[in-house]
Design a binder for these strands. Structure first.
Lengths: 194, 194
DNA sequence: GGCCGCTAAATGAATAATCATTCATCTGGT
DNA sequence: ACCAGATGAATGATTATTCATTTAGCGGCC
């Protein structure tokens, strides 16, 4: 078996196990069992338990951010960009519930390492929003007195909170597209210049 | 020494220790030392480590929610209620940073017990918002097509995300009152009926 | 007032359980 | 026959929890 296969298998298993039990309560042997691999094998691919978590973030979240950027770039108007961002964010939570759960739960830990990591990755993501807002302001579409640094967090926070609701509930209580529309609308009206 | 003193002392110590090290990394002996009490004493007042965390939530967050409700009730218009809610939320994060940190980090754990607890306590809190929105809709101040269930989360999420920023940074990068104004404005415009 | 005896509260060393990590051994492919 | 990769039992460290022992406060008694 090619080594990359095992790496992948372990990451996938870890996503499930972390989502189910949380990072601290998850045992290496749980992940090993889920990946159908011996406990020790995990240490051939990862330095330690933490390293697994960080790898999950890096690889899975990295992919997601790249996809989002691409989608946003394809849209013409700032309004459309905001809408597609909201839709992509919420769809991801629905389609990849385990990962969403991990981001919701584990990326919030107060552990120093995670704290640092989170700052970087969150910034990269929410800065997509502030860039859109600045573009919109330059075009005179969004109000000048809106501070992109605050607005980006308000918008992200709103989406993130909806995600939390889904992660906690067995079934999405609202329709994804409706919700994305509703939230981006509210936000767009809130920062509109006319 | 009255027994209630010790209970209080342990809770206070736990808030600090949990905020600093996180629940899982915090040792009972850390809390005992911070409370100037023997390790075993803690078990005279709490059943186990988890019980300490839950007590922190119950007692401290309970107080906070009660205060918020009272403040909101004192305001006349739905707009003012929204504004005061935002201000109270952000002020609390500034004045009681350790507790805010614990709410941000530990109340998001994926542990079953915490998950359940969180549902209840968050609902109680965000329902303050949806009630305001419904009142506003009845008076014709807020748009009818806004769903209170979504809007309440969008608004709470926005505030929560600003809190996260402060918890992560050594100093609040924005002025509390400005931020509260900016966010409630954006939200109020976004749901306004005219 | 000082002295007992009693009980609740407090102590912290010892226990016991849990797991991350290691490493001596094995295996399948070439 | 070789060896990179895989194995999983054993190790060792960590800590939540327990409990035998100590301490402190208090009421009654001389």
């Amino acid at each position: 078996m090619k080594s990359s296969d095992k790496h992948e298998k372990i990451i996938r298993a870890a996503v499930k196990v972390f989502a189910k039990k949380g990072f601290f309560s998850a045992r290496i042997s749980d992940i090993a069992k889920a990946a159908k691999v011996a406990d020790g094998t995990i240490y051939l691919y990862f330095n330690n338990k933490f390293d697994i978590l960080i790898s999950v973030f890096d690889e899975e979240i990295g992919k997601f951010i790249a996809q989002t950027k691409k989608l946003v770039d394809q849209e013409e108007t700032p309004q459309k960009k905001i809408e597609i961002f909201a839709l992509k964010h919420l769809s991801m939570a629905k389609e990849n519930k385990s990962l969403a759960e991990i981001i919701q739960m584990e990326l919030r830990q107060s552990h120093k390492l995670i704290k640092e990591y989170r700052k970087t990755i969150f910034s990269e993501y929410v800065d997509i929003i502030s860039n859109i807002i600045r573009q919109g302001q330059e075009k005179g579409i969004f109000r000048e007195d809106v501070k992109p640094g605050i607005a980006k967090r308000a918008f992200f926070g709103a989406l993130d909170e909806m995600t939390r609701l889904w992660v906690l509930s067995p079934k999405p209580p609202y329709d994804i597209e409706d919700t994305a529309k509703q939230i981006s609308n509210m936000f767009l009206i809130g920062i509109n210049s006319k």
